[in-house]
Write a protein that binds this DNA or RNA. Structure first.
Lengths: 336, 336
DNA sequence: TTTCGCTCAGAAAACGTTTTCTCATGGTAG
DNA sequence: CTACCATGAGAAAACGTTTTCTGAGCGAAA
């Protein structure tokens, strides 16, 4: 039933080695090559990738491990990476950790067992030190503080600063910030947020929100039920923005009439809520492209120094008042 | 450098066969088992999956091929499937065809070369007959007309009917429908749409929209620029709804004040635009679960008859007037 | 013409496991 | 006490390729 390279060789009247050579594009006699190709056709041969990988000792596979595939930021980056990879003839294994360090470790183990060529990782752990792995790794979106890794991240501090500055120009004076507790990125944004507010003399409260849905909702509820409710809310990513929006609706608060809402990630629906949400747009395709390039570089030069690429985002000011403020102050982050 | 089962065996003072048996949970002498496990620990052994798959002839891998990973419907279904699969110790390979039959064929070839245990496929082709593959296959979201395959789909005709009925109760009399040209599902929804409209005496125009972004926008533009613009629009999926919304905004039309908008897929942002969009919610987790179950059944019984599971969706009526109409008429699709 | 490479194809080894085969040991039934 | 079967461990084969090794053929240089 199963047809192997042996059968093809038999059908073509050549040796298995020759078939292998034809298939991998080595130089062989044209007549033989044609015979082999015809035999491949007639026999319906399909190479067995497991055998090929075992013998050749390279898998042409890279692992892509993200924290949450439902987060449109990650799906967008994944798309870019997948496109680039398949153009280079690399297969990708996509994994989803759900911000769970245990799942992340399990997937990293899997990557070792798959003998992947390299891994692109959006790490879930923030401070935990993980055991060293023996494949090249590029981090995206987040770094691991204690470790030196190639990575490509947003300039979180500057972007959070721009956001606060924008809201301040609009006249907001009591801003609440919600930042992912698990991720290094969340905490960087928090720092940018607080520093900017301090500089501008804006009152803030900032909160580290856990990944768990229920706890996050509770925390948000507390923030809004507080005696002097903030007049603006900043959220650390697109998924959180969605959660905030839902809570605001439940409380009957209109955006931006009753309260302003801004944050990170430009997801396609954001232009439709109210007069549109002001956000920091991440250069998703460039993040993916850079990560992929860094990974192939690293594979080629395993011992070069670690590199960190920090990309600028773009402040998209929405809502009429927002646009007005933008024109007045020119608070626009330079792309790249 | 690379540590294999041979090294473990040496360290534990047993034969490689015994190590293999310990690792696959066969019964071995407890003392030996402990020695092996300790040796695994000290040597840092990681099994080579390629070798394992080659020898054992089963990959414990299933392929998941969807038409568009950016479509939240597919990401949601993927999540469910991935969760179920990893619980069963199955790895999944996720692929994205972009509605391109050529890419789909390429990925199906890949699946054969990977020797996957089975495939779950949301087919891009509508009528094209593909060559038979030698792995069990379950179709989701769409069927392939000429072929008999296990599949799990929405009751598209009934759901489209419910949508039209709902809009009719709301008083709409000129409804435009936009349906995916490539997919069988789009055409079923179109049929349900037109039949319902005919029965209720509603004027409709319906359009088969291509996957390409530009052409779709052009078609939509034509529909809205038409002399007597429709008073409601139905779109065949969540991504299309987004596109329509963008075009309406560009034309300065308010939803639902100027024109009603409804369709398929309940994506989280849909409750936030205007008074909320009325949609058919698909039972995504049940679709994923059913597909996975069908696939494992099929793997266990390769020769059983093909089964088709048709699931009901749920009409979510949004906007005050919509909710009112709902209360009045009780047009609620029964779940399951 | 002889010899020295050089190219190219087949034979055989190798990749790292699992599985089959073989054999020893020990317990049980006759 | 012998014969038989069951259990379990090591030896060796096998999985389907790629790659190394070997040798044949041939053109160019001496």
């Amino acid at each position: 039933m199963a047809v192997g390279i042996r059968d093809v060789a038999l059908a073509a009247g050549v040796s298995p080695a020759t078939v292998s050579r034809v298939l991998s594009g080595k130089s062989v006699d044209p007549a033989m090559r044609d015979a082999v190709l015809k035999a491949v056709e007639t026999t319906g041969y399909r190479p067995n990738l497991a055998a090929r990988r075992l013998r050749s000792q390279h898998t042409n596979t890279i692992g892509l491990i993200v924290a949450d595939i439902r987060n449109p930021f990650f799906t967008a980056v994944s798309r870019t990476i997948e496109d680039m990879a398949s153009r280079q003839g690399l297969r990708i294994i996509l994994c989803n950790t759900d911000e769970d360090p245990a799942k992340e470790d399990a997937y990293l183990d899997l990557m070792e067992e798959e003998r992947v060529t390299g891994v692109i990782l959006a790490p879930a752990r923030s401070a935990r030190r993980s055991k060293p792995r023996d494949f090249p790794t590029v981090l995206i979106d987040r770094t691991i503080p204690g470790e030196v890794f190639d990575c490509v991240v947003l300039d979180n501090i500057a972007m959070a600063d721009a956001l606060v500055q924008h809201l301040a120009h609009l006249g907001h004076r009591r801003i609440a910030g919600l930042f992912g507790a698990e991720s290094n990125t969340g905490q960087e944004r928090r720092k940018g947020f607080e520093d900017a507010a301090a500089r501008l003399g804006i009152a803030t409260t900032s909160h580290a929100v856990p990944h768990a849905q229920g706890e996050a909702a509770q925390m948000l509820h507390d923030v809004l039920a507080h005696a002097d409710r903030p007049d603006a809310i900043v959220a650390s990513n697109g998924v959180m923005l969605m959660g905030v929006l839902r809570e605001l609706r439940a409380l009957g608060l209109q955006v931006p009439a009753d309260i302003a809402l801004a944050g990170f990630d430009n997801i396609d629906w954001m232009e439709f809520v109210g007069e549109g949400l002001t956000v920091i747009e991440q250069p998703v395709e460039e993040i993916g492209r850079t990560a992929m390039t860094m990974l192939t570089d690293r594979i080629a030069h395993p011992d070069g120094p670690a590199r960190k690429v920090v990309l600028q985002g773009r402040l998209i000011a929405r809502g009429s008042s927002g646009a007005q403020a933008m024109r007045k102050t020119g608070t626009q982050a330079k792309a790249r």
